[in-house]
Design a protein around this nucleic acid. Structure first.
Length: 590
DNA sequence: ATAGGGTTAG
């Protein structure tokens, strides 16, 4: 710039301006860039396509998209590169409409799009997760006409676009047709299965990939570990871990973070903390993952200890760290500690609490029975509470059987999210547990009228590498008779020791025997029974469930852990229960 | 001269 300022302006050639602008763009110095632009204007230098491109590049690199667009509109541009530059910028800020507009304008101007143009526009489709896929499809077929489907990169971005827009079948077709699959193709397809909830297909594809000779990289490993984590397949996760060690990637930061998360979500905090302790370098995500892991398992004290250790290590907690530690407090009933962190966050760390933080606090208060205080807390929030905030209080009302307050809270929830079946089901359960059958019926009608669907309860367990799925009241599993016989025996044993079935959780109107039968059909009981019958003696029974665990099942699990001498680890939609010697790690806070 | 996939909380 010094040299530029001193030089005789009229003698500077266009290509020199280009070089200087290029530099300004790369250094992101808008001030200098603007100065060069004004010199160009003052000296009446003609802004041709080449110089215009540099100007646009300089502005967009400095984050001045609208300035860049002004220049773009002024210059005559016949080069595809400049159009790509512009389209890519709009794709980055997810301005879907502008991307499409420029794309069409470009075609009208007779400029031939290249594969990069397509990748920019498809990236924008993917980012917006567009519900209407017809545009994406037409861009796809247009790309085929130009034979871009021979290019692996083009296919990969297409695959990703379909996957992010929720069309798994189309994504899979693209994958099948990709002739030269790269590691990115495989990773994207694994991710596509994972996104659609087909976690075991994701894991299967990973094994297919390794046997096909394509070597997974850290992106692939993170993706497959995430699939293991979501499905809770500890055995699959361990086999991936073995692969990682074999490749010498066991010290990689990303891989370790994903590994820890996998172990935590598969119910093994021992393995998670082992990975954590052996990491040579830890970042904030590593710490947040371990804190959240302890929280999920009801190890509140350990979560707090990790949080303090992180601060001693000189890592500044971020918003997620506080969500994790508050969540841990709430699942361990540590109300005072929770308040303390909520204050530290604001006063010491200067972090403005977000909706998630408020949700944690409402959860903390209402879970521990301070329902009225939680209500006042919501009323005093400086930002507008959303459905999850009121939903947390509604959950608390269920735990503490407060029907009156639940009705008031539900009004807020239904107003904010009228289409979410979860909340209607939650209120219906509160009514059912209070035996208010008329109200239950009314709500069921309401759910039906709105065309909403309740997710059926479903549990699964891994035995010898195979996943066995149980759905409530579903007798299709070949061993269901044997399981039921076992459960009946357990129930008799419980009754002898004075544990009566928690009939209010049968959620149905009927006589006691009917209720007891309904409770016995719960999917988590079936899965636990199957595990006890089929796993070698002494081996921990690990069961996953898609919804919250039922209270009666919780009692039975405690009892079974005592009579069989086994540990039972049960993962529900947001928490782990460790049953051992007749008690549970959650100590009632869930 | 430009490019594609991944890890935490809810």
């Amino acid at each position: 710039m010094e040299w530029f300022r001193l030089s005789e302006k009229p003698s500077i050639s266009s290509s020199t301006y280009c070089a200087v602008l290029q530099l300004c763009g790369e250094l992101k110095s808008l001030q200098d860039g603007k100065e060069v632009h004004s010199v160009i204007s003052c000296n009446d230098v003609q802004i041709n396509g080449i110089l215009g491109t540099r100007l646009v590049f300089m502005y967009v690199s400095c984050g001045e998209l609208s300035q860049g667009r002004l220049v773009f509109d002024q210059v005559v541009n016949e080069k595809v590169f400049l159009w790509n530059l512009m389209i890519n910028e709009y794709a980055k800020v997810e301005d879907f409409a502008e991307c499409v507009y420029l794309f069409q304008k470009m075609l009208n101007a007779g400029i031939a799009a290249d594969s990069y143009t397509f990748s920019c526009i498809l990236k924008c489709f993917a980012a917006s997760g567009c519900s209407d896929l017809s545009l994406g499809r037409s861009v796809h077929s247009f790309g085929i006409k130009l034979h871009f489907n021979k290019e692996t990169k083009f296919c990969n971005i297409l695959l990703d676009m379909y996957s992010k827009c929720g069309d798994l079948a189309a994504a899979s077709r693209v994958f099948e047709k990709t002739s030269e699959r790269s590691v990115v193709s495989w990773t994207s397809m694994i991710q596509a299965y994972s996104r659609s909830g087909l976690l075991h297909d994701a894991i299967r594809l990973f094994h297919e990939m390794t046997s096909s000779g394509t070597k997974p990289d850290i992106f692939t490993l993170s993706a497959v570990l995430h699939a293991c984590a979501s499905s809770g397949s500890l055995e699959s996760g361990k086999s991936v871990h073995n692969y990682i060690t074999g490749q010498g990637l066991e010290s990689n930061l990303f891989v370790c973070n994903a590994l820890m998360d996998m172990y935590a979500k598969c119910g093994s905090m021992e393995d998670a903390s082992l990975v954590f302790s052996q990491m040579p370098v830890k970042d904030i995500i590593s710490w947040n993952t371990i804190i959240a892991g302890y929280g999920m398992h009801g190890f509140g004290k350990e979560a707090i200890r990790a949080f303090e250790e992180m601060r001693r290590d000189g890592i500044k907690p971020d918003g997620v760290s506080f969500i994790s530690v508050l969540y841990a407090c709430s699942h361990s009933g540590l109300v005072n500690e929770g308040w303390r962190f909520f204050n530290i966050m604001q006063k010491e760390c200067k972090i403005e609490p977000s909706l998630e933080h408020y949700a944690c606090m409402v959860d903390l208060l209402s879970r521990s029975g301070k329902l009225q205080m939680a209500y006042e807390f919501i009323k005093g929030m400086p930002i507008k509470p959303d459905a999850t905030i009121w939903g947390a209080l509604l959950c608390g009302c269920r735990i503490h059987h407060d029907v009156k307050l639940a009705e008031r809270v539900a009004e807020h929830v239904f107003e904010l999210e009228p289409e979410n079946a979860r909340y209607y089901v939650l209120l219906a359960n509160i009514y059912a547990e209070a035996e208010k059958w008329e109200e239950v019926k009314e709500l069921r009608v309401k759910i039906g009228r709105r065309g909403l669907k309740k997710h059926p309860g479903c549990s699964w367990i891994e035995v010898k590498g195979k996943v066995h799925v149980f759905v409530a009241k579903d007798g299709s599993h070949p061993e269901v008779r044997k399981i039921e016989a076992l459960l009946r025996k357990v129930r008799e044993g419980m009754k002898k020791e004075g544990f009566s079935p928690k009939l209010r959780y049968a959620l149905m109107n009927g006589d006691d025997l009917e209720k007891e039968m309904a409770l016995c059909g719960h999917s988590e009981k079936l899965a636990m029974g199957f595990g006890i019958l089929n796993l070698p003696p002494g081996k921990t029974v690990r069961v996953m469930k898609n919804l919250r665990v039922c209270r009666d099942c919780h009692e039975m699990a405690k009892f079974m852990s005592k009579t069989t001498g086994r540990e039972i680890i049960l993962r529900d939609s947001n928490f782990f229960h460790h049953f051992k010697d007749g008690s549970c790690s959650c100590r009632g806070f869930w």
